[in-house]
């Protein structure tokens, strides 16, 4: 019961155009059965100030994370969450959010851990929708809960853990944080709260490609050629590479994961969600400071 694909010309350059929709596509299909629009923002209240008519909210802090263990929700919790949002296993989900879809991409990545098949991003996100003068509402969305099956989360394909990273040396790593974090001048993004990493710097050999470089000024993804120039020519990724991206808690790197996997078509891309808040506090893991990538550690 998937919604039809968006045939926008820009998307055809991407490896997986089926992962994106334009604002125009969405505007024409609001309210269509089998389609649920999800807003996922950094700010937990932004949705309440006005959202796309008929959309539901998924909050990364309070709904996608396990409340106790540092992990994502499990299959039962995910099934309950999606069912309560009116999302069935065969629903087409379009996710959008603030800040170049930063958190929207994170939500999409978590949905993908559970193998939700048809989940797409709204290119340009919340900001473009607003900039184009499209409607927002504060009306509460009436949701008819549905059954979502309990599906075991699969962490083996697109998620990397610390030990995976240690075993990954020699393969490309992409650090998507700010240059200040990469160099070791600070442990969290400029203007963001410190989140408790004990050491600053980056994982040895990681290339620095701040995540937002993938976004154009209007919040949409840059065209294919520009993305290739950044990730292939500049960062040195090649076809067939096994890539791990990381940031501070795995949110910004979800955005880069999306770009590498779905726009550029790399087949082995994992997001290390432990990221710097784990690596920067772990005992005896190698760290490099400064602007250089550093060497593969010898153990």
């Amino acid at each position: 019961m998937s919604a039809e694909l968006d045939s926008a010309a820009k998307f055809t350059e991407y490896a997986h155009p089926e992962r994106l929709v334009t604002t125009e596509w969405l505007a024409e299909r609001l309210g269509q059965p089998g389609l649920v629009v999800v807003e996922s923002d950094e700010d937990v209240l932004l949705y309440e100030t006005g959202h796309i008519p008929g959309s539901v909210k998924v909050d990364w802090h309070t709904e996608l994370n396990d409340p106790v263990v540092r992990d994502y929700v499990n299959g039962e919790q995910f099934a309950a969450l999606l069912g309560s949002k009116g999302i069935a296993r065969d629903t087409t989900v379009v996710i959008y959010g603030d800040k170049n879809n930063w958190w929207a991409a994170y939500a999409l990545w978590v949905f993908t851990l559970f193998g939700h098949e048809d989940v797409r991003l709204l290119d340009g996100g919340r900001d473009l929708w607003i900039a184009e003068g499209r409607p927002l509402t504060t009306d509460v969305t009436e949701v008819t809960p549905v059954e979502y099956p309990v599906v075991e989360r699969d962490d083996s394909v697109i998620r990397a853990f610390k030990d995976d990273v240690l075993a990954h040396f020699g393969n490309p790593l992409i650090d998507v944080r700010s240059p200040e974090e990469y160099n070791g001048e600070r442990t969290s993004a400029p203007a963001y709260p410190e989140e408790g990493a004990l050491r600053a710097g980056h994982i040895p050999t990681a290339a620095s490609v701040p995540w937002a470089r993938a976004a154009a000024a209007d919040g949409t993804f840059k065209p294919r050629a520009e993305l290739d120039a950044i990730y292939r020519d500049e960062a040195g990724l090649e076809d067939g590479d096994d890539v791990i991206a990381y940031c501070r808690i795995g949110e910004r790197s979800s955005h880069t994961w999306f770009v590498l996997a779905y726009l550029l078509g790399f087949e082995q891309v994992r997001n290390y969600d432990g990221s710097w808040t784990e690596w920067g506090s772990a005992v005896r893991v190698p760290i490099v400071t400064g602007a250089e990538r550093g060497e593969v550690p010898t153990r």
């Binding site: 937990v44 209240l45 802090h61 309070t62 709260p193 989140e195």
Partner: peptide, 14 residues
């Protein structure tokens, strides 16, 4: 803390 998460509440503490 439950409604918006402890991390966000830290902003108000600051």
């Amino acid at each position: 803390s439950e409604a918006v998460s402890p991390l966000r509440v830290r902003g108000m503490t600051g």
